[in-house]
Design a protein around this nucleic acid. Structure first.
Length: 790
RNA sequence: GCCGAAGUGGUGGAACUGGUAGACACGCCGGACUCAAAAUCCGGUGCCCGCGAGGGCGUGUGGGUUCGAUUCCCACCUUCGGCACCA
């Protein structure tokens, strides 16, 4: 028996797979006899912003790999691509730190990461590889951007946006965490800028539904929170002396009679146009404070504006206050204040001694509400909205927390926005046959508060495609999440030079069967991608409405108690363990550490147990090959254990999506086998162990498959259990007295319930606990236990 | 405050549909092999009482349902995640 030498084995088989294009999957063509079962296995694509993979990547992609192997060998046509999220801030910042051009840094990082991936032996179809920064990819990102514009889902407007003073760019709402930039942690500022937006709010309601997609409740709840749908009414309050209407949004139209004052946000246009000097002064002061600071204040503040608004339901004149507890960016920026039924309004009323009128009694019925008195609140809502609607002073509406997605970035390393600004024609798309608008190589791409491309005359000066006059390119680049909102579609048809994709091919493979990635993308990438697919489906470009049929979130691999990340610098990669013990050991270990959906602390020392297991497997299989009869029997104790192992591994991987328990199951089998390597059914047990561990440790499994006299395990059919062998003749009957286990007896499966009771009664230890008495009741669970109740 | 998830040995964890709690590992203890060590192999290892046979306790806490609860129900505690002056 040769020594187990993982490096030699791994290099050998990786070469074979590459030469044979073992994991390449061709696309179907119309008229092909298509395999019925197909599976699109996808894990979130990596950012090549750092020079290497960390154990979090290893966990994710190994999970996908196990899934891929088991499905492939079970007869599924499996698509398993890979690519690079190469544009964007992290990549650009890494390049700036290194003092190189981003393309150089990123392409070098991609090289390294790809080599690491290959060294781990993942079954990836590398022929489909794409990267967001390649013109062959971003040509279609630009084309898609223009499609959004043509369908009215991309637009420009001046609006307050989140500006990161450190990264010198706008960032999306979705990536502002507690008022800070998700990337660098700097506090963001609100700036009024003209920007491109994608109209995600057009799909707000639909994004709350998941037709055909089996997603974790957790993720759906996060998205639901983010979208923040609330039903209510818009009510118009009249300011008679100014001859204008102020609309408010309320979820409680039933409390309209309880409104005793009216409040507008400091940023509300009413303030600048009509409020008193004192109120304007107040608005200026509070405008300097962030929402967080305002919320942190103990006392509510505000100033009377000098005007009154009329409550449309009862004609009451309410003083209009300016107060910063009302936010301009939610609802209409103005509220009707009902201090009796709103905590914040109550605080304000108390501070400024304003009246409080209760309009809902303890039984939830309307009071002090004229002809609506006595109605239950829900009915009161409907009745009051109906009354307002009749007068043209209000209507039922739905309000959302979700904002449109801001996609312009004032940075260099991103996909150019394919539009031209012409003084005469306005915003004009670059003609399709001129795409892609290439990202020019420029010397100075450092952020300066203005987009670096704006300073490049050669890029900026362009003839208007419409009138031919002098015009300017859009100097911004796209948010990198635009790239990642459709990369999974491009994978399917990555070499298509005629179109972004061929719908025939896309509709065969998609939606993604199983997506694996971090839950941190719930309100960003995962929401944007759903928005994209819904829009594309509406335009007839693909035949499904949800991109990801099933979704799984892995836990964080932590080091020192916090998630591994390049920004934090607490990163451990696979290289050292691969060097010491081989790729198979790393793959097994990262999955053996615990349930894949839970956070786990990276403790490299534990790999010892896996290494022992691999050496034992190696030794035991060699012993079997020498000693056990061939071809051997497929029945007996070991054969039964082997069949049970097949059931457990298959069920855990395919149905339960659980990856650590199958390893334990194979360990049990190998432990039993090691005690009887010359048994008549030892060969079957060894073959089974090698076969079912193959998705986890494909190299050593392939080698040992050869030792057992076979070849090409990677395409060998996944084993099916022999049902007959799973049936036992006897089982261990648990005998309880009052629910406590008192004895265990080996009995035949064929026994009747009466016979089981008789056998249980025969136990001395049971007699002891029955203490001469007769059981009051006897519970029999066939195949399991007998319980005597006294 | 609202929404969601999780609490099991010294450690990671198992127990899927209410039926043997602690599989599989790590660590630790003991033994074999060895001049010795490493590697490997064998045995032990939830806690308490007992020489032993055996007994009691035990899945965050307190209750409940049940012949039987880590699993179901109620209340609470702790930790983690999302939203939050959102009208």
């Amino acid at each position: 028996m040769e020594r187990y030498d993982p490096h030699a084995i791994e290099a050998k088989w990786q070469k074979v797979w590459e030469e044979e294009r073992a994991f390449h999957v061709p696309n179907p063509k119309p008229g092909d006899d298509l395999p019925e079962n197909h599976w699109y296995q996808l894990e979130m694509l990596p950012y090549p912003s750092g020079p290497s993979l960390h154990m979090g990547h290893v966990l994710n992609y190994t999970m996908g790999d196990v899934q891929t192997h088991v499905r492939r060998r079970s007869g599924w046509n499996v698509l398993r691509p890979m690519g690079w999220d190469a544009f964007g801030l992290p990549a650009e910042n890494a390049a700036i730190r290194e003092g190189r051009h981003p393309r150089e840094t990123i392409e070098r990082n991609i090289e390294t990461m790809r080599a690491q991936m290959k060294r781990l032996g993942w079954a990836i179809d590398w022929e489909r590889e794409v990267s967001a920064h390649q013109p062959t990819f971003y040509r279609w990102t630009q084309w898609l951007f223009q499609q959004f514009w043509k369908h009215g889902l991309a637009y420009r407007k001046e609006a307050p946006v989140n500006w990161c003073p450190n990264d010198q760019t706008v960032i999306a709402n979705e990536y502002v965490i507690d008022g800070r930039c998700e990337r660098c942690g700097a506090e963001v500022e609100l700036r009024n800028m003209t920007q491109w937006f994608f109209r995600t709010t057009a799909y707000a309601d639909e994004l709350l539904e998941y037709p055909g997609a089996d997603w974790p409740e957790k993720t759906k709840a996060i998205q639901r929170n983010w979208i923040g749908r609330s039903e209510g009414a818009e009510v118009l309050f009249r300011v008679d002396e100014l001859d204008l209407d102020l609309p408010v949004f309320t979820t409680r139209p039933d409390t309209l009679f309880g409104a005793t004052f009216f409040v507008v946000a400091p940023e509300h246009p009413f303030v600048e146009a009509h409020a008193s000097a004192a109120a304007q002064e107040y608005a200026k002061r509070s405008g300097a404070k962030s929402t967080e600071e305002r919320a942190a204040e103990k006392e509510k503040t505000g100033v009377f504006s000098g005007h009154h608004a009329t409550n449309p339901i009862n004609g009451e004149r309410l003083p209009i206050w300016v107060a910063d507890y009302v936010l301009m960016d939610y609802g209409t920026g103005a509220i009707m204040a009902v201090p009796a039924h709103d905590e914040r309004d109550a605080q304000f009323a108390e501070t400024f001694d304003l009246p409080i009128v209760p309009v809902i009694d303890e039984d939830g019925r309307l009071v002090n509400s004229a002809r609506f008195d006595g109605l239950p609140a829900e009915e009161g809502k409907r009745a009051i909205v109906a009354a307002l609607e009749e007068q043209g002073r209000g209507k039922a509406t739905v309000n959302y927390r979700l904002r449109d997605w801001s996609v312009s970035r004032q940075r260099y390393w991103g996909c150019p926005i394919p539009f031209v600004h012409c003084e005469r024609c306005g915003v004009v798309p670059v003609p399709e046959d001129e795409l892609p608008v290439l990202l020019p190589d420029i010397e100075d791409y450092a952020p300066k508060g203005k987009p670096p491309l704006a300073q490049n005359e050669e890029y900026m000066a362009v003839a208007c495609p419409q009138c031919g006059g002098a015009a300017r390119r859009d100097p911004d680049t796209m948010d990198t999440f635009v790239d990642s909102s459709w990369y999974f579609i491009r994978y399917v048809d990555s070499h298509n030079g005629e179109a972004a994709w061929d719908p025939f091919v896309v509709d065969y493979w998609m939606p993604v069967s199983q997506y694996i990635g971090g839950i941190d993308h719930s309100t960003g990438h995962l929401l944007y991608s759903r928005f994209f697919v819904k829009a594309l489906n509406d335009w007839g470009l693909l035949g499904f409405r949800e991109p990801f049929a099933r979704l799984f979130h892995q836990g964080w691999v932590q080091l020192g108690g916090t998630k591994m990340s390049k920004t934090k610098g607490n990163v451990a990669g696979p290289d050292e363990i691969v060097d010491a013990y081989g790729a198979d050991a790393v793959r097994l270990y990262i999955l053996f550490m615990g349930p894949a959906d839970q956070d786990m602390e990276w403790v490299p020392e534990g790999v010892e147990g896996i290494v022992r297991f691999l050496r034992r497997l190696w030794r035991v299989v060699h012993e079997v090959a020498e000693r056990a009869p061939s071809p051997g029997r497929r029945e007996g104790e070991l054969a039964r254990k082997a069949n049970e192992t097949i059931v457990r591994v298959t069920d855990d991987v395919l149905r339960r999506f659980q990856f650590h328990t199958p390893i334990a199951a194979v360990m049990e089998l190998v432990n039993e086998l090691s005690a009887a390597t010359d048994a008549p059914d030892a060969r079957f047990a060894a073959e089974t162990a090698v076969s079912v561990i193959q998705p986890y440790a494909p190299h050593v499994a392939e080698e040992l498959w050869g030792v057992l006299g076979h070849e090409r395990l990677w395409e060998h059919p996944w084993p099916e259990p022999d049902e007959a062998q799973l049936v036992r003749d006897t089982f261990e009957l648990v005998v309880q007295v009052n629910g406590k286990v008192r004895d265990r007896v080996e009995v035949e499966v064929s026994l009747s319930e009466e016979e089981l009771v008789a056998r249980a009664r025969a136990s001395d230890r049971v007699a002891q606990h029955l203490d001469g008495g007769e059981p009051r009741k006897t519970i029999v669970v066939p195949g399991k236990l007998v319980n005597f109740v006294v």
